[in-house]
């Protein structure tokens, strides 16, 4: 009763990073609320996964293990989450804002008539006073998300309905094992009790998952290009420079939309959130939606021919010039001066 649940998503047979991020955050929220954190893992051949969930802060791990659940499909996963929540009555339930969480979350919230906030970038515990009703709610989940195309930040609450549900964007929360070794309780979900045969009317007939070679989240240095880079060919310079200094190449939404870079390189609210020690923004003007995804970088260098570009307001160094002039110079002087 009244605990915090994280519905964990699997990737290649292990718990996905987004779910570990949620468990890390969920641990802190559960401590503030004075409740337990429980993880729900649905799939097949789950034995051993509980250990990882404990390491990241779960107190209880529910395993719903069944051969029919090997691949995610909406209906049986919904039945399991809905029935388990009816039984356990959690106060908070978190999912990743991935195609998994954004497919499952709304279905579950509709069945339970509980509120769901999509794509949160921060979660806090706080109180709320409804002045009209003269009522104060304590220990609510404050669900903070960009809205209106990223131009405003809204704080959403679900005062009267439980579980308070939220999906959270990948990469905005840190993923950290608990300092002390932990273990907890493993509980088996009786799948046949929760799932109905008619839940299996959708079948996955083919899956092609491409292992992305791009690791923006883990990169210490990111060279990121925007629309101002001008072309896909000019992006080649960024790749050369990145290879030289051991960096990863990122891109703004405008550059991705223009076809200069692949979608998995996109940084910003509709992309990955990064916090490298150095972020070099090339030809990026710095729209809100981009800055929100990189503002925590330790150092920002902007290369832009417009001194008034918004990116320069959060930059440590602003180089006034064209990307195609500046990057070759950076390459040259890096080569000359490193060892």
């Amino acid at each position: 009763m009244d605990n915090l649940f994280v519905i964990c998503e699997l990737e290649n047979g292990t718990i996905a990073d987004i779910s570990l991020e949620l468990l890390t955050k969920g641990r802190k929220l559960a401590d503030q609320l004075g409740c337990k954190q429980e993880a729900l893992i649905i799939g097949h051949k789950l034995k051993g996964l509980e250990k990882e969930a404990f390491d990241y802060g779960a107190d209880v791990v529910w395993l719903a293990d069944d051969a029919r659940l090997e691949h995610y499909t909406t209906l049986p996963y919904t039945s399991i989450a809905v029935e388990l929540f009816r039984q356990e009555k959690p106060q908070v339930a978190l999912l990743g804002a991935t195609s998994y969480g954004r497919d499952l979350g709304p279905r579950v919230s509709s069945a339970l008539s509980s509120g769901l906030t999509a794509d949160c970038t921060a979660l806090e515990i706080g109180e709320h006073t409804d002045k009209r009703a003269g009522k104060t709610y304590k220990n609510l989940l404050l669900q903070i998300r960009p809205a209106f195309g990223g131009n405003i930040i809204a704080t959403i609450i679900n005062p009267e309905h439980k579980p308070q549900m939220a999906t959270v964007r990948e990469g905005v929360m840190k993923m950290e094992k608990c300092k002390e070794p932990r273990s907890g309780e493993v509980k088996k979900v009786d799948v046949d009790k929760f799932v109905r045969p008619e839940d299996f009317v959708v079948n996955v007939i083919e899956r092609h998952m491409e292992e992305s070679g791009v690791n923006l989240k883990g990169a210490p240095v990111i060279i990121s290009g925007g629309y101002g880079v001008g072309s896909k060919e000019n992006f080649e310079m960024l790749y050369q420079f990145a290879e030289l200094i051991g960096a990863e190449v990122g891109a703004s939404r405008a550059a991705v939309d223009a076809g200069f870079a692949e979608h998995d390189r996109q940084i910003g609210q509709t992309g990955v959130t990064v916090r490298p020690k150095l972020y070099i923004a090339c030809g990026i003007s710095g729209q809100v939606q981009h800055i929100a995804g990189m503002q925590e970088s330790a150092m920002v260098i902007s290369v832009n021919n417009d001194q008034e570009a918004p990116i320069n307001k959060i930059a440590d160094y602003a180089i006034l010039g064209n990307v195609e002039d500046v990057i070759p110079k950076m390459i040259k002087y890096y080569k000359e001066n490193s060892k």
């Binding site: 405003i152 307001k313 440590d316 160094y317």
Partner: peptide
């Protein structure tokens, strides 16, 4: 069930570049 508690403009910590 969801209520908007607060709406804010997006403000970033400005630095002197």
């Amino acid at each position: 069930p969801t209520k908007v508690k607060k709406v804010e403009n997006v403000v970033f910590q400005a630095k002197e570049a």
